[in-house]
Design a binder for these strands. Structure first.
Lengths: 209, 209, 209, 209
DNA sequence: TATGAATGAGCATTCATTCAT
DNA sequence: AATGAATGAATGCTCATTCAT
């Protein structure tokens, strides 16, 4: 038990550093964030950060990937709800769209996009990994759902991947525009509007009839 | 004339510095780019850069705004072509969409998005200005065109702003996804596909009948 | 017996650490060598090194002194052979000179000189101790041998210490020059030449007749 | 004139930095010396040191080479005096030997040897350069002088290089031993003794008759 | 106006050393 | 006795910015 506690403590400290790191990176950007600041806010000494995570770069990558996985899990859980859309497909789609928008609009998700975008040139591989674990994954999950609905005759879709891509476009792009890349808060009512409009247009195009 | 030449020379030098600055910022990112590097590539001494542009921050803002205006001009010119869509609306829309995609996929436009996104937190006002001059402007121009087409009975649109927002979403968001935020080149054929799919879905939803 | 084994193990571990330490110090220099590296190569944890040897400085001193004693023992054994020079004094001297040169040219001896010299300012006392145990000792042993030979009428020497000093100078200084302070390997043939030349000159000056 | 003054000022500052650097390196050793300390003692800001000398390593190399050249010039001037030895060769040789010993015993020369030796492993090329410019050069100059004296019948030498090597050995090695690698001051009288003894032995071996 | 030179501030990283186990 | 983990203290180096010319 003592051993378990000890190694749990170690894991907790590492996790704490990663969490704080993401927050600080989100606040200041990769370059302006300094390891000292992260260490201070995590309540550890600077070398402890290095002991656990080698590098500023490594620290960044791990922090970002952890956030990416968390966001991905949230979104996947939402999309999964399309498995049983119930009678009212429009309502179900709108609900999913709205909840996806909520996630996209949350701090972590916004920070994740900003950090990833900001380091496009510096860490191209990281961008790749993050996108694969998030956008890619959710796009595929959505395509799977749409394919099932098409099979069930609920939708008229020939290319599920393309349909998913467009549905997600209709959901996320307007949010990016209205939130001005996340610099402005978008009220829930407006999220609702975006979700409704996306669903309406999507169903107009792909609805059976 | 001598004076004119001199001040022309001055203006040219300023412009040269801004151009080089954008290139360097695009290549290295705001923080990693250093003024010395910009001065070197512009063929001037470091203090000359400061004489013309005060600050690293000011230098950045001017460089980015100049690029934003250039991109905006390009996109507006394309959207303007929707004024006379001809008989085949689908063809006209697809053409416009394709050319917009070309612009979005070009180096300057990608760099502009990356730099803007990267400095979200640091220069929120800049983000605002850039977006206003680019996305905002083009969204409005597009809304204007769609409104006219609706008025002419060619499209069934109640909210032109929303329709424009969605059309642009269908055009740009898939590009972002497939180019992995601009880190991968997207072949012309794929741009074509995106344009066609966007037009098809848009017209399915908003076409008259 | 168990106790003996245990303390033997302890001694062995200490010895292992010292050996590794000398190697690492020789390779990297005092300052650039880090305790972690020594611990790693010795297969122990860092605190174990501290348990056994207190300090980086202490560790260094012990490691260097051990090496110094080993080198001193080697050289003394060689000089001792002058006790019975046989008929051909020139041959005996040349042989001793050659073997001294071999020792001087060996890795441990070179590293010892380099490390000692490098820490002249930092650990002046160590320099003193090392020199006393090596150069001093061998100079005296050599003086003893020469005095005996003088007494036996084989050499014409009034000041044996001075003669020894000069003989050792004729042996070691040329090696330092030709090996460029030990950075270049000197082939055996060249060592032979140095030994012969030293002997010749020494005997020309001090030989009886 | 203004230009001359300005660039003279620049050169002076660079030279001042190099001088201070050598002093500090001599006092603390390469690794323990810190650039800040050098900058402080030179009365400039740290970046100024970097502006002029790129690197800590570069700074070290230039400082050491400058010192090496100065020492070499001193020693060469002394050896040159053997061009006209006058009637009393023993006196002339002793005088030269004594003055060489004075140089070897001076702070700069001692520091130069210590620093060079200390960085054997780290900067082997530097060692090479320093030795070439000092020991090598002086050995050749001495060989030249001895060859002339042999030609004039004043000395019986077949291999001037070897003779020079041995003469220098007889001069310098005893000093190293007695000064304990430069950690102890050797009184002038003792230098005199060393010089005399070296000359005596050398002439016993190589004198004509 | 343009520039060579200088600087103050900051930051990633390393390392000897020490606890708690 | 041995170690995993943590830390205080340094240090090399960079960069935006400013003078003096």
């Amino acid at each position: 038990m003592a051993g378990a506690t000890a190694s749990r403590g170690r894991i907790d400290k590492r996790q704490a550093i990663l969490d704080v790191a993401f927050t600080v990176f989100a606040r200041r950007g990769y370059d302006k964030a300094c390891v000292q600041e992260i260490a201070d806010e995590a309540g550890v000494a600077k070398p402890t950060v290095y002991n656990h995570l080698t590098d500023k770069q490594t620290l960044f990558e791990h922090a970002v990937l952890a956030a990416a996985d968390a966001v991905a899990a949230q979104t996947l859980a939402i999309v999964a709800d399309l498995r049983e859309p119930g009678d009212d497909l429009a309502a179900a789609l709108t609900d999913v769209a709205y909840r996806l928008l909520e996630v996209c609009a949350c701090d972590r998700s916004r920070a994740l996009r900003a950090l990833t975008y900001a380091q496009l040139t510096t860490f191209p591989d990281l961008v790749d990994t993050v996108l694969t674990r998030t956008s890619r994954t959710i796009a595929e999950a959505m395509a799977d759902r749409l394919a099932r609905l098409a099979l069930a005759g609920t939708l008229r879709i020939t290319d599920p991947a393309e349909a998913a891509e467009q549905l997600l476009a209709l959901i996320t792009a307007p949010l990016e525009a209205r939130s001005r890349l996340g610099t402005r808060a978008v009220p829930a009512a407006e999220l609702r509007d975006i979700a409704r409009a996306a669903t309406r247009t999507f169903l107009s195009a792909y609805g059976s009839r």
